[in-house]
Write a protein that binds this DNA or RNA. Structure first.
Lengths: 225, 225
DNA sequence: TCAAAAGTGTTAGATTTACACCCATGA
DNA sequence: TCATGGGTGTAAATCTAACACTTTTGA
């Protein structure tokens, strides 16, 4: 082992993940009860320590995989939280990520295994340490991102109705929008394609199902959901 | 010392700073030749290791102070860079910040002490490790921020001309804008105040000097420079 | 007197917002 | 038959972008 920087002290580094899901018209976050001391039993984000042989991004990917059983989730870094006393146990610098998942891809079994709960982002209980702050920052960054890049499909099933898409948009931004104006904008986006299929789960008449076409979406420079 | 997490391994954490300045119509970054091995002599950002008794933010503030002699600089976190092999010496996770400084506040003596150089952001030489990537990301974040929040005054002298402000705007965004349209927008911003003073350094006729008034600017929700 | 930067308005086009009714269906 | 969610267009208002000439003054 090299020792270039031997005079400097090392510190524990963890990753914490805000897992966003969209269900029943609500933007939700996956949280659980903390399973180790200190703070055992408190509501908390899912996290883990960064290992020697993995990048920080990979550590986050691993934690997400362990929890959800899903690989290659859409995931972005929120930033580092580094106050000296942020963790009551010992000094830990935490690097925070958010991930977007389609709740239907996430198995019940997996959820029960970790005793994970989906909670409406506006109704979060108290969370361990500075996790609430992390969620706040993640939400802001996700809002920003979702309006600039085509990522909403990560939160939706392959096929979705325009009403679902609108509700997602509203849940993310925390404000309602006009149906006609919303649909007018969507109609101009070639990468949101109407299929011939009809969904009847939420109305008697039924609503057309749409899908994203990532090929048609070539980093459209004017994209703005 | 508590030992809650004794089974997990620790790692070196550093901070690296992108210091932005604006001079002669150019957006510039402060870099220097690396003074320690490995990589001694290569162009590099300024950085330092996070100590046990300081938050990560404070570590960045300290590094900035050591280098520039200035306290309470405007500073924002860019994010964590955590690839396993990013530093050729030993594993180091780096947390990156950018800072904005008014080049006139930065003393020559201080600059010579650290052998620091202002370099046009579009003409950077090769930089140590992943520092070039850090600059790229910092620039994108700064662009975003400067158009949403009143921070440009951190890069300008107290008094400035509208042409200077426009050049700053153009240097940050990398594209020219129409003078009349720009000035029209500025005129609507109450927190940019015309003074009675005239600056004659850049033209025979002279240009009015303006100043920012932070009091008038109450987090204007519609701000968009 | 002239070169160089400062300063100043108008208009066409594009974008955004507000707004209300009919449709299809299963219960 | 009726309650429920799905679907559709137009007009006014606002915002954005393009564009050119006059002023001042030191060299």
């Amino acid at each position: 082992m090299t020792t270039y920087y031997h005079e400097y002290s090392k510190v524990l580094v963890s990753v914490d993940c805000i897992i966003f899901g969209f269900d029943e018209g609500e933007l939700r976050v996956l949280i659980g009860k903390r399973k180790l001391d200190p703070g055992r039993g408190q509501w908390s984000l899912y996290g883990g320590f960064v290992r020697n042989n993995e990048s920080v991004d990979n550590a986050a990917g691993r934690v997400l995989y362990e929890l959800t059983g899903l690989r290659n989730l859409y995931m972005r870094q929120v930033g580092a939280f580094g106050n000296v006393d942020r963790d009551p146990g010992e000094r830990v610098i935490s690097i925070v990520y958010y991930a977007l998942i389609n709740v239907k891809d996430y198995e019940k079994a997996q959820q029960e295994l970790y005793d994970a709960q989906w909670v409406n982002i506006n109704e979060l209980p108290q969370l361990y340490s500075d996790h609430k702050e992390m969620v706040k920052k993640a939400r802001r960054m996700m809002q920003d991102k979702i309006s600039r890049e085509l990522i909403s499909f990560r939160l939706l099933p392959k096929l979705f109705t325009l009403t679902q898409l609108q509700r997602l948009y509203e849940a993310v931004n925390g404000e309602e929008v006009d149906k006609r104006n919303f649909r007018k904008r969507i109609k101009e986006m070639d990468f949101i394609e109407k299929t011939a299929l009809i969904d009847k789960t939420s109305s008697k008449r039924g609503a057309y199902l749409y899908q994203f076409n990532k090929n048609t979406y070539n980093e459209d420079p004017n994209f703005k959901l």
